[in-house]
Amino acid sequence: MTYKLILNGKTLKGETTTEAVDAATAEKIFKQYANDNGVDGEWTYDDATKTFTVTE
């Protein structure tokens, strides 16, 4: 399945997608991606749209 991440960081904003077997796997990938890019904030997930959002 395709999952989407919306980044609302102070210095980085944008979107990315990943292919993952489930939401938990996608979350791990996205949290590593956000960490690698210096984004740390409040996480939400919308199962209907398979979208994670992180807001600093």
Score class of each variant (00 low, 15 high):
residue 49 T to K: 07
residue 19 E to P: 06
residue 53 T to L: 06
residue 7 L to S: 03
residue 39 V to F: 11
residue 45 Y to I: 02
residue 32 Q to F: 06
residue 49 T to I: 08
residue 30 F to N: 00
residue 41 G to M: 03
residue 5 L to R: 00
residue 37 N to Y: 13
residue 27 E to H: 15
residue 10 K to V: 12
residue 29 I to G: 03
residue 43 W to P: 01
residue 53 T to R: 08
residue 11 T to W: 15
residue 22 D to I: 03
residue 38 G to F: 07
residue 15 E to I: 12
residue 53 T to G: 03
residue 26 A to S: 02
residue 43 W to E: 00
residue 49 T to Y: 05
residue 13 K to A: 08
residue 17 T to P: 02
residue 34 A to M: 06
residue 45 Y to M: 02
residue 43 W to T: 01
residue 32 Q to W: 06
residue 30 F to L: 05
residue 11 T to P: 04
residue 50 K to E: 03
residue 50 K to L: 10
residue 48 A to P: 08
residue 31 K to P: 00
residue 36 D to P: 02
residue 1 M to A: 12
residue 6 I to N: 04
residue 15 E to V: 13
residue 34 A to N: 03
residue 2 T to R: 11
residue 13 K to P: 05
residue 49 T to L: 08
residue 3 Y to T: 00
residue 42 E to L: 13
residue 2 T to E: 07
residue 38 G to D: 08
residue 25 T to G: 08
residue 7 L to D: 01
residue 24 A to R: 11
residue 35 N to H: 15
residue 1 M to S: 11
residue 12 L to H: 13
residue 51 T to E: 04
residue 45 Y to L: 02
residue 15 E to A: 09
residue 22 D to F: 04
residue 21 V to E: 11
residue 1 M to V: 15
residue 19 E to R: 08
residue 54 V to S: 02
residue 7 L to G: 02
residue 8 N to Y: 12
residue 6 I to T: 05
residue 3 Y to E: 00
residue 10 K to I: 12
residue 45 Y to K: 01
residue 26 A to Q: 01
residue 56 E to Y: 15
residue 23 A to T: 11
residue 22 D to Q: 04
residue 4 K to H: 12
residue 11 T to D: 11
residue 22 D to L: 04
residue 26 A to T: 01
residue 55 T to P: 01
residue 43 W to M: 04
residue 33 Y to L: 05
residue 1 M to Y: 15
residue 1 M to R: 10
residue 33 Y to P: 00
residue 47 D to V: 11
residue 21 V to S: 13
residue 3 Y to M: 02
residue 16 T to D: 04
residue 18 T to D: 03
residue 30 F to Y: 02
residue 50 K to F: 11
residue 6 I to A: 04
residue 22 D to T: 05
residue 2 T to S: 08
residue 20 A to K: 02
residue 11 T to S: 11
residue 9 G to L: 14
residue 18 T to Q: 06
residue 21 V to A: 14
residue 9 G to R: 05
residue 25 T to P: 02
residue 15 E to T: 10
residue 18 T to Y: 08
residue 6 I to F: 07
residue 48 A to K: 15
residue 25 T to M: 09
residue 20 A to H: 03
residue 47 D to Q: 11
residue 2 T to K: 11
residue 52 F to S: 00
residue 13 K to S: 10
residue 54 V to K: 01
residue 48 A to V: 12
residue 54 V to Q: 01
residue 36 D to L: 12
residue 12 L to A: 08
residue 5 L to E: 00
residue 39 V to N: 03
residue 54 V to P: 01
residue 40 D to H: 15
residue 25 T to V: 09
residue 35 N to D: 09
residue 19 E to V: 15
residue 29 I to Q: 06
residue 15 E to G: 06
residue 45 Y to W: 05
